[in-house]
């Protein structure tokens, strides 16, 4: 629902601005559209690779598998595993949060869920080809590396606040 809403807003806003732009200057608008097309075409090869990798990961890591990986074992090992699973998976937030809630009910600790959610959102292993195309290998590695370390801190913080540490 949240997903449909934001898509709707995104398309509405784009259409509105496009109409305003077209009324003000047709040539410029045509140029903007040409640039958009060119930019998509530029990144398409990397996107296609990511799509296949994401497909493979989603096929491999359905909610059942994820919950068997970060199940009731609430120890340090479970948290590390949760962080790693989060880093390599790419699932949208509107699927991730219900999955996380389900994992909590299944006996997973808050610390693991905090680590999983944080690294899921901030670290992108499968999207590496796309990120690298724009930022180069070095910056991409550094950004994901620091985001991963930060996710460890978030896991610890959540564990502390939730009374698990």
């Amino acid at each position: 629902m949240e997903y449909l809403m934001s898509t709707f807003i995104l398309y509405g806003l784009t259409a509105l601005l496009l109409i305003i732009s077209f009324r003000k200057d047709r040539m410029k608008t045509r140029m903007a559209l040409r640039k958009a097309l060119k930019a998509i075409e530029n990144i398409l090869p990397e996107f296609l690779v990511v799509i296949l990798l994401v497909g493979f990961l989603l096929a491999l890591m359905n909610p059942t598998v994820i919950s068997s990986l970060i199940g009731a074992d609430s120890g340090l090992w479970g948290t590390i595993l949760a962080l790693l699973v989060g880093a390599v998976t790419l699932i949208p937030g509107f699927v991730a949060f219900p999955t996380a809630a389900m994992l909590l009910q299944g006996g997973a600790g808050y610390m693991q869920i905090g680590g999983f959610i944080s690294s899921l959102m901030m670290v992108g292993v499968v999207t590496f080809p796309v990120e690298k195309r724009y930022f180069g290998t070095k910056v991409t590695l550094l950004r994901n590396g620091t985001a991963f370390v930060f996710s460890i801190i978030v896991a610890l913080g959540i564990g502390f606040v939730m009374g698990e540490l």
């Binding site: 601005l17 040409r34 096929a59």
Partner: peptide, 25 residues
């Protein structure tokens, strides 16, 4: 894998075009 990849393409079709058009503008 191919089914999920197809689904991902579908999802991207919704998000990618408006973002790139906004960027062009």
């Amino acid at each position: 894998t191919f089914q999920k990849a197809g689904h991902t393409i579908w999802e991207m079709l919704f998000i990618i075009p408006p973002i790139f058009v906004l960027l062009g503008l």
